[in-house]
């Protein structure tokens, strides 16, 4: 962990009545640095927070937005909740799986893209929805989805 990250975590503690409260933002900071939070980083966090490593791991694995394994340069997540599924999210994700040669949840061999499915993105009115590096792409059809993914470097 970079000293800057560590410094930011120490700064976080000032904003919470208990150290433990700062765990979520601290995990974000570590993920920002490494792209994911593996067991080693989780151990380091546990030491800083003076809690058991399992306690960090429980939080890490609970939330979808934390990654415990290295991710691709780009994150492509397709919502497969009910409204999106009714509007064709499942053929969409199968099509992306085919194009990228990976299953949902996996990263392409060249480390370019991690594909995944996601629970509700809160944009049911514009289903199906896909989130690419934090940006929403709505009212998708297969062609547009493929075009968006193809232009990622």
């Amino acid at each position: 962990m970079k000293p800057e990250t560590r410094k930011k975590i120490d700064e976080l503690f000032r904003h919470y009545p208990e150290r433990r409260g700062a765990l979520l933002p601290a995990i974000y900071l570590v993920q920002e640095e490494f792209g994911y939070v593996g067991p080693e980083a989780a151990r380091e966090l546990a030491e800083i927070f003076e809690i058991a490593p399992v306690a960090v791991w429980e939080v890490l694995t609970f939330y979808n937005m934390f990654y415990t394994e290295p991710q691709g340069r780009h994150h492509v997540y397709v919502c497969t909740n009910l409204p999106c599924s009714l509007r064709g999210a499942r053929p969409l994700i199968r099509c992306l799986e085919e194009r990228l040669g990976v299953h949902a949840g996996e990263t392409t061999a060249d480390g370019r893209i991690t594909l995944g499915h996601e629970e509700c993105l809160g944009s049911c009115g514009t289903a199906p929805v896909m989130r690419v590096d934090g940006v929403y792409h709505e009212n998708l059809d297969l062609e547009r989805a493929l075009a968006i993914v193809d232009q990622l470097d």
Partner: peptide, 27 residues
């Protein structure tokens, strides 16, 4: 493990129907 032996090896990871009891990776 947390309250009695105070060694805290076990945890429940993931969530919902994917929840799994395990030790910390490698521990």
């Amino acid at each position: 493990c947390r309250e009695v032996s105070q060694t805290g090896e076990l945890g429940v990871f993931q969530r919902g129907e994917r929840s799994l009891l395990e030790t910390f990776p490698g521990a």
